[in-house]
Design a protein around this nucleic acid. Sequence first.
DNA 1: GAGTGTCAAATAAACGTTTAGCTCGAGCGG
DNA 2: CCGCTCGAGCTAAACGTTTATTTGACACTC
Lengths: 369, 369
Amino acid sequence: MARPTIRDISRVTGLSTYTISQALRGADGVSEDSRARVLAAANDIGYIPNRAAQDLRRTNRDSVGLITASTSNSYYLDLIGGIQSTVQSLAWTVIIADVAVDGHYDAEQEDRTVRRLIEARVAGVISTLTLSKANTELLSKWDIPIVFVDSSPPAEAPELPSVTTDNYQASMQVGGHLAGHGYKTWLFLAYPAIWSTRVEREHGLRDAAASADAGLVVVESANDAVSAGQALKSYLDTATAVPDVLIAGNNPMLLGALEHLQLRGLSIPRDIAVVGYDEFAWSNLIQPPLTLLNERSGEIGQQAARTLAEIILAQDAAEKRGESSMPAYRPDHQLQVGAELIVRQSCGCGPVGHHSFTPQPTIPSAKGR
Amino acid sequence: MARPTIRDISRVTGLSTYTISQALRGADGVSEDSRARVLAAANDIGYIPNRAAQDLRRTNRDSVGLITASTSNSYYLDLIGGIQSTVQSLAWTVIIADVAVDGHYDAEQEDRTVRRLIEARVAGVISTLTLSKANTELLSKWDIPIVFVDSSPPAEAPELPSVTTDNYQASMQVGGHLAGHGYKTWLFLAYPAIWSTRVEREHGLRDAAASADAGLVVVESANDAVSAGQALKSYLDTATAVPDVLIAGNNPMLLGALEHLQLRGLSIPRDIAVVGYDEFAWSNLIQPPLTLLNERSGEIGQQAARTLAEIILAQDAAEKRGESSMPAYRPDHQLQVGAELIVRQSCGCGPVGHHSFTPQPTIPSAKGR
DNA sequence: GAGTGTCAAATAAACGTTTAGCTCGAGCGG
DNA sequence: CCGCTCGAGCTAAACGTTTATTTGACACTC
């Protein structure tokens, strides 16, 4: 028997397919005796249900999609972990879909990916990037709830849920620390703005620079280390002076920057200080140890999954009552999670004891922006 | 219209579902006129096919499963990339399934995962670890071909295809280099042997140590940085002397080891030299820059996917001819890919110019082991 | 004008489950 | 002994596609 079906079990046990189905998934209406026979037979012939047939027939959907751009950014691994852990407790599964084609974001790939998730009839979507207007509308047409994670909802649909680091506050914190060092020329090496965090980070840095009377230059490159290195090179080649500090927008940017600074023979933090945005495993082993912002990505992932689950369950309940099957979003579905700066030495702080850092009054965080 | 089906398009256009189906996927037997009407209508009402229904009805399967343990080991990201790129060109999709539950391999999770892949009726499986006898048999009962990647087939089924780094040769290479430095006491910090590469690496190191008249100690820990650090600590706490060189079995081991050595205040390579097994992005920025073995994981992934695709296509063809639907494996489905040592400074080689390294005759690689 | 071939399109039967609705007996109270 | 309930199980109709087979219209040939 190459690919046994429920009917094969039926044949073997002499029970109807109904009974088999009930017995297999532990529903009642089946005697203990029959259930045992069914399970034995199933195990015996190596039966494994056909997911496609189940999905087709069942009404309740039990998977959610996660849209990601360049997973290779190790920051996302924690995020995924957080999502998985929450979703697994509901016995759902996560479909991870990367919209980057060899490392670069690709708009058509975004379209294909959203389509694929709808084809799979996912119950909901978590997206790490702001989706296009068309895709947001498509998902909403299919009544599929979306939660943005570490990215903001598109401008056309600002009411959509999101869970993010408080990037503005975080950037103010970074900026405050740099101000404390007395740095006056800041260079922000940034990734493109399809990742909406870029905008918030820049905004926070700009405000911090202003209140510290420092100058901020923004250099943008594609979201990978090689491009970042090249962008930095072009900038430094033409700049009149090396900036006091380089702020890397994320880890690929940081990697590219460090490689280029090493190549150029600039010493950190003597010639130029460096700070970055994502804590990662090796940061303390790099020379000098890196001062980084620690985003609590695992926690963010969990929160996002919880929010999505809540919306889906409410939606199912409403549908069961015969009400609208549109997902219902609430204002408290928009969450911000704090982040803290991990101060090591690349910012100019010395090993414990000998630092050239003057604490400054904390810049008040802007409320309700 | 909340969730439009093919019948809705049928209703709108006045054509039968047959015609819609043909038109949508570009088959012929449909006039250009009708096709245009169908596509317009589909686009208009936002129709997206139901994957479950397609999968159920279609005979040809078009997804493959990838079994992984702890994806967070960044080494796998390239591997996955290589597989994706090959598989995408066939318009298939990859289902990635991690059998680690919070970072640790879990046997039950392996069983669940294999089941899940069979439920999805995948056309084939690529596994990064040696599967249990039961799971191998289960897959073979369902006529699902398996290719092992960076791991060997289980002892019970040695004929199964595999694509691996030539770990023995690679370890001999590592060992040869260490011998050239004149190191006499080697410490191999290893992960558990469910990853079969561990065995081959140890074997190669052992032979290299023997022929260099050096002593090899193996310390094993769970496959994560924290456990590795602890294992190293326990060993060093009781050892009479610090070994000449530490060989980290993979990146989590390396990370744990470096953290612990830093904590202990041992200087690399003065007090102890260090080499590792997987090249990664930050390796050149660590102090001192790390000497690592560069496995060509992208290439390995591509090869594995190509091999699997070949087997699946042959299987489909055979089935179409009414022959056996069992996958046919050939001896040339077992491949080994070379690796080269990237020499930096953690092994004791100085910056270009001042090294204390004496080249040694290359240890001949054992043929046909 | 009968036979033949071609093309577009329709019909209806799958695919492997789940599930609403029904049947059948047994048990039980009156 | 009647009517009722209840549990165990059956039958058959879904779910949304694909596809083997059939139909019908039209053109072409002898």
